[in-house]
Amino acid sequence: MAKIGVMSFAHMHAYAYAEALKSLPNADFAGVWDDDAARGEAAAKLYGVPFTADMDAFLGGGLDGVIITSENMKHRAMVEKAAAAGAWILCEKPIAPNTEDAAAIVAACKQAKVGLGTAFPCRFIPALTQVKDQLDAGGLGALYAASCTNNGQFPGGWFADEALSGGGATMDHTVHVADVLRWFTGKEFTKVYCENGNLLREGINTDDIGALHLEMDGGLVVSHIASWNRPQSFPTWGDVTMELVGERGVVNVDAFNQKIDVYDDEAGKGAWAYWGGDPNRSLVNDFIAAIHEGREPAATGVDGLRAVEVTEAAYASAKSGAMAEVKRLAI
């Protein structure tokens, strides 16, 4: 049994990870810490675990690992504390709002000799793992180009407050696909061009649409839409899609397109009932296995850093109006 604590319920994914901790046989959901005591207490009560208001006391409780699901800007301080306390860490994506914080997070865990995972559940979506297998087996031949999306509904709250998130949709919804493409191809990103802006929602100080043009090693060209463009009336939260164009043909993957159309007069609109796998549960399961086996999680802190290098370059491009180089930090 691994004793796992959750640090902050600021990110809605915390609830999915908490559900996983409750249901996984080898996990002991040991407690909650949150800098918002009311939110933390409510979550602790929901899952029947103790809430600890003092971070040091929480981290001194003999935890094997923590899941950090705070606002992006707070990741680094929490990781540094948790690593120093010897806890293994699964950190929500983006691992940090900038490469400076991301590199510091990686360094802190390396120094403390604790494993560090980035919460990239896409690595556990069956549709994507199957495409990865297809690519590895040479089913598509050489990969030449891709066009991708990670669209979502507007998340509101701190996500659209730059002081807490560090950036908007371009930051929130680029890293998953960036990680999947690195994982699929084994290649790194070299350049990015980005057009973005606050074009949909009034009263926020971040972008809510990003259109990215990326290049990877070997000249692979990729476009990606990172957005909060799905309206509240959309049947689900959003999507992860990829069109992969290769030597032998084209693969289209719509990662969450495993749904039943539901029409309920009482709901007032059509909805989708999802019947696919539970990637969040698989992600937490891998984290716990990593602790038991003393290995890094499937998507490491360095994978998280590499994705942040892409978003940082995207924002630099949007600002300069030119293609930006993706600077790969030595680690």
Binding site: Y144, H213, V221, S223, V245, R248
Partner: peptide
């Protein structure tokens, strides 16, 4: 802004991404 993938092998093909 635009990117294209243009090839003559294994057959003539082109894929274009434009913003």
């Amino acid at each position: 802004f635009s990117q294209t993938m243009r090839r003559s092998e294994p057959e003539v093909m082109e894929y274009a991404l434009v913003t």
